[in-house]
Design a protein around this nucleic acid. Sequence first.
DNA 1: CGCGGCTTTGATGTTCATCAAGTAAAGTGG
DNA 2: CCACTTTACTTGATGAACATCAAAGCCGCG
Lengths: 235, 235
Amino acid sequence: MSLVSIMEKSTCSCENCQLRSLFFSHVSMDELNNICDIKIEKQYSKGESITNEGERIHEFLYMKEGLVKLSKTDIDGKDQILSFSKPFDFVSLLSVFSSDKYKYSVTAIEDTTVCILDLEVVKKFAQQNAMFTMDLMSSISEATDKILLDNLAIKRKHLKGRIAHVLLYFSDYIYKKDEFELPISRREIAEYIGMTTENVIRTLSEFRKDNIIKIFGKDILIADKKRLRSISEFG
Amino acid sequence: MSLVSIMEKSTCSCENCQLRSLFFSHVSMDELNNICDIKIEKQYSKGESITNEGERIHEFLYMKEGLVKLSKTDIDGKDQILSFSKPFDFVSLLSVFSSDKYKYSVTAIEDTTVCILDLEVVKKFAQQNAMFTMDLMSSISEATDKILLDNLAIKRKHLKGRIAHVLLYFSDYIYKKDEFELPISRREIAEYIGMTTENVIRTLSEFRKDNIIKIFGKDILIADKKRLRSISEFG
DNA sequence: CGCGGCTTTGATGTTCATCAAGTAAAGTGG
DNA sequence: CCACTTTACTTGATGAACATCAAAGCCGCG
């Protein structure tokens, strides 16, 4: 939070970047080097804001490492969390080709590295390289589809099912472990699932009493995943 | 519902089609004629299914006229409605470039005309025409963004606000009239806003008793739009 | 005509938000 | 570094919002 972000021109290492397959798979090495030259890598510490709802979009950016949340603030100042994203579920592109302003805020919930390209340059490039544009489109389409599906899944569940869903999301999808540190507060869980903070806490406590999970502050251990799954699917 | 769908090779009239601007604005007249030649127009009567969740995607399709719903059936057989779409908010493309199977079902809720192109042909075309692909991407991005925003808006409202939201949606956005025939059943409203059919009906009755709307079966007249707006925004 | 689906209303109970109050943890300024 | 302030977390009590169950009327359709 208090750490100063570090911005630096990266040494060009794009050709080995895992993200190449994301939408640079049909970009030649020459072209990639051109892109690489103008690329900036930027670090954000946990809690830092990456883009803000309403701000003008000047840059094309995608996550190299870390974890972020997508959120939107309503008139009363209350936040709603739309989704969480890790690299490959990149996300800051959401409005890039349909709006000139960000429709959502993106905030790091773990230390995050982002690659930044000038939007105009990328657009110009996209106009000349249809394969790149198609790969881009696939990625955007896949990412938003994931968000839509997730929101639908949450919508049809009750409080307990939603909490179970969130725990399984972080356990199965993000950390791939049964023990992990929750990267978000109880309030943020509430903002994500559309319930109150108090009820999020109550439900977590209930799961603890039923020996489904163990809680040490932000550290969560899933003790009975089978049961958690059945709660998530609702029964 | 019981009407037989009519499928016919259209006479080529694409050059005057209102939808040209959608993603054919950067397509030359020659290319457009090529597309036009392989295009099929298909009519669906109210209630007919256009695409089915889980089915393989063979075609690229977009709405020329009408109104459809996007929905998904969960394990218990319960439907959830994701959104409604009219031409320009086209929608069947949602999964087209990120999956080989439809993730949602599309059903006509008014008589609907759809233009159908072979997906492989469109993909090949997209690979050669980056501007077309970019226009396509903008359209997809805009359409899904609209769905996400709408779902977020509904999520933060209570029953009454959600019903008001739906009524205003059809009045302001779809029909641009204060009196209209609801194209969907009470149950479908419930499936859309994530509440029960009974409570949808109760709330509509309440609005009627408070002289906010008049109801004649499926015909709705909005008598006090100001009040409805304030309910939608919640107060 | 009768069946199934849609609509409507009422009664009842569950789920959840709200209010309140207190503890713990974490950031802030002198 | 300590007092101070704020933010996060937790639990309980209460009432409001909503789902569920039940029953009946309506309409279109085979």
